[in-house]
Design a protein around this nucleic acid. Structure first.
Lengths: 216, 216
DNA sequence: GCGGACAGAATTGTTGACAATCTTGTTTGG
DNA sequence: CCAAACAAGATTGTCAACAATTCTGTCCGC
């Protein structure tokens, strides 16, 4: 059964390299548009170039790096326009998930959402935008999970991975958490009321406002 | 400027193999769940195993093949449940595209849609389900194109690629084209009227009925 | 002084061989 | 006769070297 996520030994070299590289990019350790030379990465991670190559192909498919024929790989930079387009897709897909979750979620799952809502309220009251952002992430993840819509979840995780850089930027904007909080509470209420249409509408309203905030 | 899409010579081996394999799978030349042995494919397409490997990694990311550690690759079989989940995602994403297209499309683009509508009407009247299915595809592709939403277009092409087998099955069902046609005409009208909400609603209604038809 | 050709360096693409892993059919002990 | 250990075969994962391509800085002719 233990089949993954032990970076030490049992993992295949390619999986190891992939996980390392992905983590590095997602945590901003690689500057945007930085060149990714296969030889350097191979040495850095202690694997061969073939493994790095496979990992880069994977990351390209996930939209995290850009590869040009005979010219090498770079970490992909997401322009504001692209971030808006991505968020529009998130809007409809998370709307779908919320609607499904409103129907499919069990009682203890609803309780989890409620709990997250109060925690988020507290984080805003205490003026801790970082904590709030993390809870925010967790809430969206839970809604996705409860929807049981595996296809949508996969697509959304792909999309979210491309937005790490912009997300940071947005969370620290003054006044934004308070605004965002209200929208999230409406969404939680709609799911608790098991009203799929209201849940979808709430998610859309929320991400519409995110899009507006992004456009500045 | 000529940079791609000449399958004859200038293409890199991996790209060539990728295109060939993808085409073969999408056109049903590979049986579902068929084993894909790297050596055989390499010989068959006249490239080396490394290229085939890279192509398989790509196809796995596109959801067309399944790869298991040290056990090989198979063309992925999409169950009916997955097909429904995929179509639900299509529903919301194409809804987004239709709404954007209703705002962004130019006059001559609207004319193209109208033309396709009449061609589809004729195909149904003549009782040619295959022609109708092709026009259907083309209509959806045009709407996506006119939306200018590149992210959504990418996601949708991924999703559609996974549905080839189910699409065939659906198109030949008696009475289905007539039903489908009406829904498409409503959508075209909504886009022509530049009414994004109506366009989105029309797309959703259409794909909801597709989901119902799939579930049998 | 400037544009274009040219050589050198750097980097990716490709190849064939080798190692690790899994499957399958067989054998052996109970 | 059956189950577990075992061995052979097949297949993927990894490696190091080679070929092809692109970029960069320099030099020459004008």
């Amino acid at each position: 059964m233990p089949e993954e996520a032990r970076p030490g030994t049992g993992e295949q070299a390619k999986q190891h390299a992939l996980a390392q590289l992905r983590h590095a990019i997602l945590h901003g350790e690689m500057a945007p548009a930085q060149r990714l030379v296969e030889n350097e990465l191979a040495e850095q991670f202690g694997v061969t170039r073939a493994s790095i190559r496979a990992a880069l192909i994977d990351l390209e498919a996930q939209g995290l790096v850009e590869r040009i024929r005979n010219r090498g790989s770079r970490v992909r930079v997401v322009t504001v326009e692209e971030a808006v387009a991505i968020t529009e897709c998130r809007m409809v897909l998370e709307g779908l998930c919320a609607a499904k979750a409103a129907v499919a979620a069990g009682d203890e799952q609803l309780a989890e959402l409620t709990e997250l809502g109060t925690a988020m309220t507290k984080a805003v009251a205490d003026g801790e935008p970082v904590t709030y952002s993390e809870l925010n992430q967790e809430l969206h993840a839970k809604v996705r999970e409860f929807s049981g819509q595996q296809t949508a979840v996969d697509l959304l995780e792909r999309l979210n991975a491309q937005l790490v850089r912009h997300r940071f930027q947005l969370a620290l904007r003054p006044g934004r958490p308070q605004h965002s909080l209200n929208e999230h509470l409406v969404m939680i209420e709609a799911i608790r009321a098991r009203d799929p249409q209201a849940a979808e509408a709430a998610v859309r309203a929320h991400l519409t406002s995110v899009i507006e905030a992004l456009s500045d």
